[in-house]
Design a protein around this nucleic acid. Structure first.
Length: 566
DNA sequence: GCCGTTTTCGGCCCGACTGTTTTCAGTCG
């Protein structure tokens, strides 16, 4: 993907300039561009055809020119130029913790170190620690970091957010024994689909006590960093970094804001504050030495004239400009969610009975659920024969008579076969309240055409997990999403945001694009057991990141309106 | 290299922790 490639190129240019000791602000401009392009929602090649690249905030004439050069020629001459006289090994070593540009430059100039192999040599023979400015402890730290980077292969490894739910929950509940408040922040609070680390914020007037407790928790492999208000540890299993910051209760809002990020969002906020003669840090907002805000997160935003911005959209992708105008859309709230529309029961490959699922969902506060078991061809997942499906319908009818203020919808996740046909005839689909069509086979066979055919059937309400990707496991189907979106727009077909944590499909960027075309969405956990129902929140999180509003998501509709749209 | 509710020039977020220093540089988030 070209965006990714350009992102890496500008990051490497930044590394090179940093090694050379050039203007830090110029370096920062490249880093910023790298970050922007990595998360940019459109394909840059196509985007550049009908937009000036400089309309992207953070991309100016210089970088725009380099992007165009890359599109035209497949290379960026600036990159060739700056890395010409730097050994290639430097670019690998700079990824290792504690090996920054200054340290690498020192080792290069004094000892000619240009590769990891050479670095290890000067560590082992003691020459590195004899350089002025270095010392035994610094060298030891570097040695550990090298070891870590070689043994764990966790280079840039990001964890799927749902996998970390239990890990976060456990640490938070333990910390609550010693701290007043404990809140997970960072990309978890922003509901990104993957997390690189865990950031925890605690409030307490006895900070040291909280920190001491934290660094002595079980399951800690190594304490990387510990001070009076902050500690960083490396967990054993899973092997990831957890940062804890402890502040006084009166700084809670400021710290929450600071620790939630994103970094780009925070930098933009602090810049606005500065232009207004204010200073934002993690303790509050200050006018010279007087604190003017900090207790709540809302107070931080209002102190610099901004509307409150929900965590999930703090990515500096236009939310700040709208907040200045007090014109942010009212994005879907977790409380708007009325029920899960994609659940499997023990009729196919789920664990629990429909009654058990219904009772549990009702306790969770849902108003309805849809039971959408697999269709007959999906034999490996216990797909239902026609007769079995009709039998299931009858069971649901009986159950609905007994349930109060709760409804089970009769559904299916019907397969779109390799031939392009649906796995049930229309006469069967007609007996259902909700029909989700999905591809589980033939991932490379005319996927786009098959999806379009399915959408042309008026009995099909929803397309499940439209791209078929599994995060960190496999790429999606061979599908042209633009065509799928066009067809969904034309036919009024609803697209699923599958909330299972390995899918999250559509993702935030796709959903945002589809919304702009007026497409509606349904959120389904694809739960195969009761424990998976809780991941509905991930679906809403993705919807929020996609800037969807209540009306865009059919799970927010009361039952009558839901049935009407189906 | 980017950007503009002081500006097309002259700024560019802010602080914690570590280690090597005797007041601060480097790295990280």
């Amino acid at each position: 993907m070209i965006n990714q490639e350009l992102s890496e190129i500008f990051n490497t240019i930044a590394d090179a300039l940093e090694f050379k000791g050039e203007n830090p602000f110029k370096i920062n401009a490249y880093r910023k561009a790298s970050r922007i392009l990595k998360d940019f929602s459109e394909n840059l090649r196509e985007f550049s055809e009908d937009h000036p690249l400089t309309c992207i905030s953070g991309i100016g004439d210089g970088i725009a020119k380099k992007i165009k050069e890359y599109i035209a020629t497949g290379k960026v001459s600036k990159l060739e130029e700056v890395r010409k006289d730097i050994p290639a090994g430097i670019f690998e070593m700079v990824r290792i913790q504690y090996l920054g540009p200054k340290t690498l430059k020192l080792a290069y100039e004094k000892l000619g170190v240009g590769s990891l192999k050479q670095l290890k040599k000067v560590i082992n023979d003691g020459s590195l620690s004899r350089i002025p400015g270095m010392g035994p402890r610094k060298v030891e730290r570097i040695m550990d970091a090298i070891h870590l980077s070689e043994t764990t292969q966790m280079k840039n490894k990001r964890f799927v957010i749902g996998e970390l739910f239990p890990v976060i929950e456990e640490i938070v509940s333990k910390l609550k024994n010693v701290a007043d408040e404990v809140v997970p922040c960072g990309s978890y609070r922003r509901m990104k689909e993957t997390l690189g680390d865990i950031n925890l914020l605690a409030t307490s007037n006895q900070k040291k006590k909280v920190i001491d407790f934290f660094v002595s928790l079980q399951n800690i492999d190594e304490v990387l960093n510990v001070g009076p208000t902050k500690a960083i540890v490396l967990l054993k299993n899973p092997s990831l970094q957890v940062d804890l910051r402890v502040v006084n209760p009166d700084s809670f809002g400021a710290s929450l804001q600071y620790f939630t990020g994103s970094k780009a969002h925070n930098v933009a906020l602090r810049t606005i504050a500065k232009s207004r003669g204010l200073k934002i840090n993690e303790y509050g907002v200050y006018k010279t030495n007087r604190k003017v805000a900090g207790k709540t997160e809302e107070s931080i935003y209002s102190s610099i004239g901004l509307e409150f911005i929900p965590p999930e959209i703090r990515e500096d992708t236009g939310e700040i400009e709208l907040a200045k105008e007090h014109a942010l859309p009212k994005i879907i709230d977790y409380r708007d969610f009325k029920g899960d529309l994609h659940i499997h029961s023990n009729y196919s490959d789920g664990i629990e009975s429909i009654a058990e699922l219904a009772n549990h969902a009702k306790k969770m506060g849902f108003k309805y659920i849809a039971i959408c078991d697999h269709s007959r061809s999906v034999t490996y997942a216990g797909g239902l024969s026609k007769d079995k499906l009709l039998e299931k319908n009858e069971e649901i009818d009986r159950l609905n008579k007994k349930l109060k203020n709760f409804t089970v919808l009769k559904g299916t996740e019907v397969d779109i076969l390799s031939s392009g046909r649906l796995d049930y005839p229309d006469s069967i689909l007609e007996t259902l309240d909700i029909v989700i069509a999905a591809i589980h086979q033939g991932f490379r066979r005319n996927v786009t055409a098959r999806l379009i055919d399915a959408m042309n059937n008026p009995l099909v309400n929803i397309i499940a997990h439209p791209t078929g990707r599994l995060i960190n496991i496999r790429n999606g189907y061979d599908v042209d999403l633009d065509k799928v979106f066009e067809q969904a727009q034309k036919t009024g077909t609803i697209l699923e945001i599958n909330a299972y944590y390995e899918r999250l499909d559509l993702n935030d960027r796709h959903a945002n694009k589809a919304k702009s075309m007026g497409i509606h969405f349904s959120i389904g956990t694809d739960a195969h057991n009761i424990g998976m129902l809780k991941y509905w929140k991930l679906g809403v999180g993705i919807a929020r990141r996609a800037w969807l509003e209540k009306n865009d998501v059919i799970n927010c509709y009361p039952l009558r309106k839901l049935k009407a749209i189906l």
